[in-house]
């Protein structure tokens, strides 16, 4: 009998993704404890982590962190494969597309705030579409669109500012990229 050992050697990128995904998951869990007036209106604190990873290490790592966060946080909260999970997953995928586009904008003019706002609007857009097609097959869900959009505006701005601030501090203390 041959002994076969499969050895997985995590490289620097794997460790980084794991570390940041953990931070994002913790923020998602903390956020789940905040009472909110409407299902779906959330600050999305985990997106701060995704933004930082995107800005410093690129889209691939950011996608890993965002998707790991969606899966792990939903497993921990008992929401895995529940409607909320699919809404979150569709929102995460849409905001990753938006972030992919946003990171190609000239950085001199567009900072993390733009990326955060675009991601937030893509997030609620995708969630509304999925909710309309699947959960509430009636145009009535769109009556919530202005509330979701306002939340995306406010939280997108705040998350973007926090991410920009943390990126500036990371740069100031010369963290290796």
């Amino acid at each position: 009998m041959t002994r076969s050992v499969i050895e997985l050697r995590p490289d620097a990128s794997d460790i980084r993704v794991a570390r940041f995904a953990t931070a994002a998951i913790v923020l998602s869990l903390a956020e789940a404890a905040i009472p909110l007036p409407l299902p779906g209106v959330k600050p999305g604190l985990g997106n701060i982590v995704v933004l930082i990873v995107l800005w410093r290490w690129g889209w691939r790592d950011a996608a890993w962190v965002a998707l790991l966060r969606v899966f792990a946080a939903s497993l921990l909260l008992g929401q895995f494969l529940a409607p909320g999970f699919f809404l979150g997953l569709s929102g995460a995928l849409a905001s990753l597309c938006a972030l992919g586009a946003a990171m190609h904008l000239p950085r001199r003019w567009f900072g993390p705030v733009t990326a955060s706002l675009l991601a937030a609007f893509a997030h609620i857009g995708a969630q509304l579409v999925v909710a309309r097609l699947w959960l509430v097959p009636h145009d009535g869900v769109f009556a919530l669109a202005p509330i979701f959009a306002l939340a995306a505006l406010v939280f997108g701005l705040i998350n973007g500012l926090v991410a920009a601030r943390m990126l500036a501090e990371l740069e100031a203390c010369g963290a290796p990229s």
Binding site: L105, P106, R108, W109, F110, G111, P112, V113, T114, L117, L118, F121, A145, P146, A149, L150, A152, L153, G156, L157, G160, L161, A164, R165, A168
Partner: peptide, 22 residues
């Protein structure tokens, strides 16, 4: 100081979008 010039534009467009949706 963390907001770059283009960010203001995006912020303005987002606010207009919220108003139009409403």
């Amino acid at each position: 100081a963390l907001i770059r010039p283009g960010d203001y534009l995006v912020l303005l467009l987002a606010a207009v979008l919220v108003g139009l949706l409403g």
